[in-house]
Each structure stands twice: as C-alpha cells, then as structure tokens.
Amino acid sequence: MNLVINGQQKSVSEHIRTIEELMNELKLNPQLVIVEQNGQVIDKQSYSVAPVNEGDQLELVKFVGGG
C-alpha cells in the first residue's frame, strides 16, 4: 500500500488495516505519536480502529524526551 508519510512517498505492507497496525510496522509507540490523516487529527483512543487507506496523507509526530 502506498502512503504519503510526512511528505514522503512510502510503501508499507498490504495487510495493514489500522493506524495502530501502521505504527507497529513503523516501530512507533502509539502513546507517543500524534497522527494527522488527510488533514484531520485522529483521536488517540481510536488508533486501533481508524482505517488506513491507499494514498492517505499522514503526518506522524512523535514525542521524544532528549534535550
């Protein structure tokens, strides 16, 4: 499946259905990531059900601690 993630074309596994599954593939901790999908910020509680579709534009911003 082809997605645009943070402005770049990315190809991810075809079996990915939800935001949470996408995060697992990208090795991101859902607790630390804010997701915007096609211009809409996604509620954290719904990552496990929110669908990901071919061509989606996603912005993924992860919180880190280092300073």
């Binding site: 943070n6 402005g7 770049q8 915007e36 910020v41 911003v61």
Partner: peptide
Amino acid sequence: SFDLWNNERSEIDV
C-alpha cells in the same frame, strides 16, 4: 517535527 537525516518535516495543528 523534523528528521535531518531522513529529510522529513512535519507540522500538525493540534
């Protein structure tokens, strides 16, 4: 957020 090595940049209106 940005990643200087992977040439990514992202902004979200939160």
